[in-house]
C-alpha cells in the first residue's frame, strides 16, 4: 500500500535559477526499503527536504495516506548527512539520542533504551560521541531519528562514510525497521551490488531516470550515460 506519494514535484532554489527537481513523481510503500540513487547534484537532499516539509515544492504535491504532507509532517523523520553534525560536541550517545524527542515530549528511559537496542549500541550509551567509530556514530544518529514517533524514515546518505561490512550492518538494521512496518527511504551514491538490499530503487538526476525493482533499475541505468561515470558503485 502506498504510504507517501509524490506527484510532479518541481523545485528551484531561486525563481530564475537552475531547476533542482523537475516533475518528480514516485511512491513509497508501507513496510519497504527504497533507495534514492543519483550522482552529486542530482537533487537527492533537495528531494528529502521537500519530503520532510523543510521546503515547499514550486509545483506538485506530496501526500501521506492521501492527506497533504502538512497534516502528516510529524509522521516523517529525517536523518541528516553526518557532515551536518558537530561530532566533537561534549555529549554522550544517550544524550544525543534523547535530543530526538526535544520538540515532541520528554523521552522516557524505556524509549531511549529501545531506540539504542534497535540499532545495537545499548552498551555504548554512556560513551562520548567523538570516541565512537564512524559506523557507531551513524547508528547513534539513526537511534536519535528513531526516537521520533514517525512511520516514514528518510535517511540522507547514511552509508557514505562506512566501510562495506559496516554498510551491510547498517542496511540490516534498516531492513528490520522496515519489516516492523515503517517505510524507509535512503539516499545513496552507491548503485552497485548493495542496491539488491532494497525492495525498490528510484534513480534521480533532477528528474526520475528509472524506478522499480533493483534489477530493473540497474538494467535501465546501464543504458543511461550519466550514470557511467566515477560514481558507479560496481
Amino acid at each position: 500500500m502506498a504510504c507517501l506519494v509524490a506527484e510532479n514535484l518541481s523545485y528551484s532554489y531561486s525563481p530564475k535559477g537552475q531547476v533542482a527537481l523537475d516533475h518528480v513523481s514516485f511512491e513509497i510503500t508501507t513496510g519497504t526499503m527504497t533507495a534514492l540513487v543519483g550522482p552529486n547534484g542530482a537533487g537527492k537532499s533537495t528531494l528529502l527536504g521537500l519530503l520532510k516539509g523543510h521546503r515547499k515544492p514550486a509545483k506538485g504535491e506530496i501526500t501521506i495516506d492521501g492527506n497533504p504532507l502538512m497534516n502528516g509532517q510529524s509522521q516523517v523523520a529525517l536523518m541528516p548527512q553526518r557532515s551536518r553534525l558537530n561530532w566533537n560536541f561534549p555529549i554522550t550517545v544517550e544524550g544525543l539520542v534523547a535530543l530526538g524527542r526535544v520538540n515532541y515530549s520528554r523521552s522516557t528511559c524505556c524509549e531511549l533504551e529501545a531506540a539504542l537496542q534497535r540499532v545495537g549500541i545499548s552498551s555504548l550509551a554512556k560513551r562520548r560521541l567523538d570516541s565512537l567509530s564512524g559506523g557507531q556514530q551513524q547508528r547513534a544518529l539513526l537511534a536519535k531519528t528513531l526516537m521520533k514517533p514517525a512511520k516514514i524514515f528518510l535517511l540522507d546518505e547514511p552509508c557514505s562514510s562506512l566501510d562495506p561490512p559496516a554498510r551491510e550492518d547498517f542496511l540490516l538494521i534498516m531492513r528490520q525497521i522496515a519489516d516492523a512496518g515503517a517505510s524507509v527511504f535512503i539516499s545513496s551514491h552507491d548503485w552497485g551490488a548493495s542496491l539488491n538490499a532494497y525492495d525498490k530503487v528510484v534513480a534521480l538526476d533532477k528528474t526520475i531516470l528509472a524506478s522499480g525493482t533493483p534489477e530493473l533499475v540497474k538494467e535501465k541505468l546501464d543504458s543511461i550515460s550519466c550514470m557511467h561515470g566515477s560514481y558507479c558503485g560496481g
Binding site: P80, R84, L85, N86, L96, L99
Partner: peptide, 8 residues
C-alpha cells in the same frame, strides 16, 4: 545543546 550539535 541542540544548536551546538546540529544548528540546521
Amino acid at each position: 545543546v541542540h544548536i551546538g550539535l546540529d544548528p540546521e
